[in-house]
Design a protein around this nucleic acid. Structure first.
Lengths: 358, 358
DNA sequence: CTGTTAGCGCTTTCAC
DNA sequence: GTGAAAGCGCTAACAG
């Protein structure tokens, strides 16, 4: 509490009021050199200072309410202990566990996530990358990658470790943690086939978010292998959201010569949109049309009918992705990972009346 | 591209590879003093440098891929251009627009939000506050305040501007942007009364998140004014989540002498939990029991039945809160704000059979 | 075990 | 209009 020697400038107490107690204040107040304080307070170098002095320093430090300035430390050390996490949309409940997974993995290396949102807009992505690099993040997990962002992400990867999570990119050296979307599409088509459906359709997600064309591909592979008939509309969603699901469902209904009996919306939000259009038009799900989504968002099991969907593993994916950056921070070069997915049959898909198998 | 003069150390190009081009590199490569570069690149001091030199500097800067080091700048300036946003749970879709509102307001002052999550855990709140202060955020918007956090938040407020958003605290000097929860509770009770309900119940949210006791109070005021009968269970939720809604609904059903005809779950997630319990027990909503929530989450209108609920205005609230910190950053001391709420009647609440009014 | 010195990258007086 | 020098708060050699 007492500033004994003739310290020239501000009284630590006064500075305490304004919230700025520095290492120098602690040093002065405990009669040692700043670097000794630095050592005493650094768990790593704990030992190199006499137990007695150390305790005194620690006591003085928290009497004064000293709080290390991470900004200064970062400037000195070149590391901020911060990993940028780039999301498309915080509102998508699919990414919540993903973020938690990333955070959990980062915790192990005492790093903290810094979240930013692209709104699926390329310009925003550029801004965010630029800003994060200026902020000197130690690494980046990009959950919002679109085809257009590829170049920028690869450029960023020359500066800091970059991991692509959930959304892959084509022909890139970037490390990726993704789901097997091809398999997801396959599972849905196969499910419909097994239930006796022969005329099916897809509500396509944005083409430049690779997950969606891959789901489409998987689906089409079964369509072709099993000899199904796929009704198509020549358009895909701009963004993978409810409103686009509505738009596409309406297009499908308006432009098809006849109705499909099974529809695969490329994600749950789009399925939700499709559902309200169907309801509005007096078509029942699943009696008239079976509808499936993808992602298994928390609420879709509570819908009426509960939505059949493809279950992803966002928490695990986040952990894997977070782990990857952490490892890259210590020089490793982890291999990309693709997680398996599973189909969750619920009330929105059902066996077609008159289907030939039990 | 060419480093003409006999620069002693690293070739900027080489440094460029490692992503670290400093002001000095730009200065050297364009034959001026670092401070001139600083001025040339600072929009504010743009003018104080000859147009010709400035253009050259700018050109060289981006040829070299110069990126200002925000960490260094922050150390020098004492401001990080960063506002800490403390949430309870990113997964709660209610806070998405809230965060967007905050971000939008911050954008006006070129600040960026830094998001952290307490999980409604006091210890985490302490950690986060400490970390944010160490990171030298310019201000804090706390959306996750619980009664236990009050002291810590007030302490933080001595260091940087702190705004409480959405969750108020009792008897505090902290600036707040909140909804009128008392009114919310009142609206629900009055709605039930108008529909002919006379025996009602609440599923109480956590007591130390002040919104909930206030909703309870508003509700009880009408109960008392209108002479309704309120069935009570002597327990409130630990956290305002679906599982707790289930638990409380079960307690209510198991411990009440008879059933209420109208139930107010203190938020939509708890209502969701209550709904599945009711369904599981063969009770129909709204035929047997009318159920209301609070928040008007995006999906609850799509449920079956669509949930009657209290609509809040999170986007607006976020803007207000963000605006408040921004103003506090320039020395103002804005007054607290309370936003109005409205009742959205939907399918989950209905006129009681045999109710005496049309 | 502790003090000295230098410097991370930038901005900002103060000179010229 | 530009250069010189100091310093933000901290850590990390290097001495002693």
């Amino acid at each position: 509490m007492s500033v004994d020697d003739g310290a020239t400038d501000l009284d630590p107490l006064v500075k305490g009021w304004s919230g700025t107690v520095t290492l120098y204040d602690v040093a002065r107040a405990s009669g040692v050199h700043p670097s000794t304080v630095s050592r005493a307070l650094d768990p790593t170098k704990h030992s190199r200072v006499k137990a007695e002095t150390r305790e005194r320093i620690i006591r003085v430090a928290d009497e004064l309410g000293y709080r290390p300035d991470l900004v200064a430390r970062s400037l000195q050390s070149g590391r901020t202990g911060t990993v940028g996490v780039i999301l498309a949309d915080i509102g998508n409940t699919f990414i919540t566990p993903l973020v938690h997974g990333i955070a959990a993995a980062l915790e192990s290396s005492r790093a903290m996530p810094t979240i930013a949102e692209t709104q699926d807009d390329h310009a925003r992505m550029l801004n965010i990358l630029d800003h994060m690099l200026s902020r000197r993040v130690d690494g980046i997990v990009a959950v919002a990658a679109r085809a257009a962002d590829q170049q920028a992400l690869e450029a960023a990867a020359k500066v800091v470790p970059v991991v692509l999570a959930s959304r892959p990119l084509e022909e890139t050296q970037l490390v990726m943690a993704t789901h097997d979307d091809h398999e997801g599409g396959r599972l849905v088509a196969e499910h419909l086939y097994q239930l006796g459906h022969r005329t099916v359709a897809q509500l396509l997600g944005p083409n430049d978010v690779l997950n969606f064309p891959r789901r489409a591909e998987g689906f089409r592979q079964v369509v072709s292998d099993r000899g199904l008939h796929e009704l198509t509309v020549d358009v895909c969603a701009e963004r993978p959201v409810t409103e686009e699901g509505e738009r596409l469902m309406e297009l499908l209904l308006d432009n098809s010569p006849h109705l499909p009996t099974g529809v695969f919306a490329h994600n749950d939000l789009m399925a939700l949109g499709a559902l309200s259009v169907l309801r509005r038009r007096g078509l029942r799900v699943p009696e008239d049309i079976s509808l499936l989504g993808c992602n298994d968002l928390p609420l879709v099991g509570h819908l009426t009918p509960p939505l059949s969907t493809v279950r992803l593993r966002p928490l695990e994916l986040g952990k894997v992705a977070g782990d990857m950056v952490v490892r890259m921070l210590s020089g490793e070069q982890p291999a990309s990972v693709s997680l398996g997915v599973s189909l969750i049959p619920r009330g929105s898909s059902r066996r077609l009346d008159g289907a030939d198998r039990p």
